[in-house]
């Protein structure tokens, strides 16, 4: 294959900037051709770079599913937890060592069906977690079943005659539950997504970014929606950037307009701040700060 490689002069020390952030001994990854999860990982790496994060203090927590595999590829302290429980695991991790920047990276089925309760409660508490949801509108790992995000009329493995139950609007849900930061992008919007990810890495509180991503194998194939590139073109054509749009107007449909942008960016005291304030007030001198790493 060398005929493709040597057309341009490539400096000897040239290296893909994502490589130091990944466990390259695990490549190639399991994601299908045309899947967008890897694209979101590129954006995350750029965000880690631009936010000047101390990588030894960034931990990544995933649940189960295709996006759940991100933790396994990230060259960080990384935790592949049980289905739906990335957020409560991350909650314990963050509270035991508040110096950690804890990122939850998981899919729509994991975070909003089996893990939905944890999502709304972590947002309510304003737990200082950065939640990135790669939304491919289906359960891909298990074969393309209906997810709480699957739009109406879509054919899925468990809705062979079309989905008739209403879907969640994730950004509206996140805002209503109390998230400090809410944005939505697609894998077409790589620079905007990287910027949003960088912003949340420097913001306190519960931050949520939804990223729409193609799933050619399990979602599109059943619905004759073409391949990954076709979905990327659809994202390009159908997306409308509306920063600050009321999240209630941002519901997704099978093939309609996709409102993207940053919808919410507000400051609320986070869980640890609230806890400290309350306990200081009640206990005064008797209050003992939690030890970052408990005396073992």
């Amino acid at each position: 294959m060398s005929e493709f490689e040597c057309v341009m002069e490539i400096p000897e020390d040239a290296r893909n900037p994502v490589e130091p952030f990944l466990r390259m001994d695990r490549m190639p990854h399991i994601w299908c051709p045309g899947c967008g999860i890897g694209t979101t990982v590129n954006c995350f790496v750029r965000a880690l770079l631009s936010s000047k994060s101390d990588l030894d203090h960034v931990a990544i927590v995933s649940g189960i599913g295709c996006t759940g595999r991100v933790a396994g590829y990230a060259n960080l302290d990384s935790f592949h937890t049980t289905h739906g429980r990335a957020i409560p695991f991350a909650t314990g991790l963050k509270l035991a060592n508040p110096k950690l920047q804890v990122v939850v990276y998981s899919g729509d089925g994991d975070l909003f069906a089996i893990g939905g309760n944890h999502f709304i409660h972590a947002a309510r508490r304003n737990m200082d977690l950065k939640v990135i949801c790669v939304n491919n509108l289906t359960y891909a790992m298990t074969g393309g079943q209906t997810a709480p995000t699957t739009p109406g009329q879509v054919i899925s493995a468990t809705a062979p005659y079309g989905v008739f139950e209403p879907a969640f609007n994730l950004v509206q849900l996140a805002e209503a539950a109390g998230a400090a930061y809410v944005a939505r992008w697609t894998t077409y919007h790589v620079t905007q997504l990287a910027r949003s990810m960088g912003e949340v890495l420097n913001k306190k509180g519960f931050c949520f970014i939804e990223v729409l991503s193609p799933c050619p194998t399990l979602y599109q194939r059943r619905n004759k929606m073409g391949d990954g590139l076709d979905t990327m073109k659809y994202y390009k054509e159908a997306s409308k950037i509306r920063h600050g749009a009321p999240t209630g107007e941002c519901a997704l449909t099978k093939s309609g307009e996709i409102v993207v942008g940053k919808f919410v960016d507000r400051d609320r005291p986070d869980y640890l701040e609230l806890m400290r304030t309350q306990l200081h007030e009640s206990l005064g001198e008797r209050y003992a700060e939690p030890e970052a790493v408990c005396g073992l």
Binding site: D77, F79, P88, F89, A90, G92, K94, A96, H118, C294
Partner: peptide, 16 residues
């Protein structure tokens, strides 16, 4: 479900 996994996050964060 949350309580039983939160403690495990805390352990990997360094706590008993």
């Amino acid at each position: 479900l949350a309580a039983s996994i939160a403690i495990q996050g805390a352990v990997w964060g360094g706590a008993k």
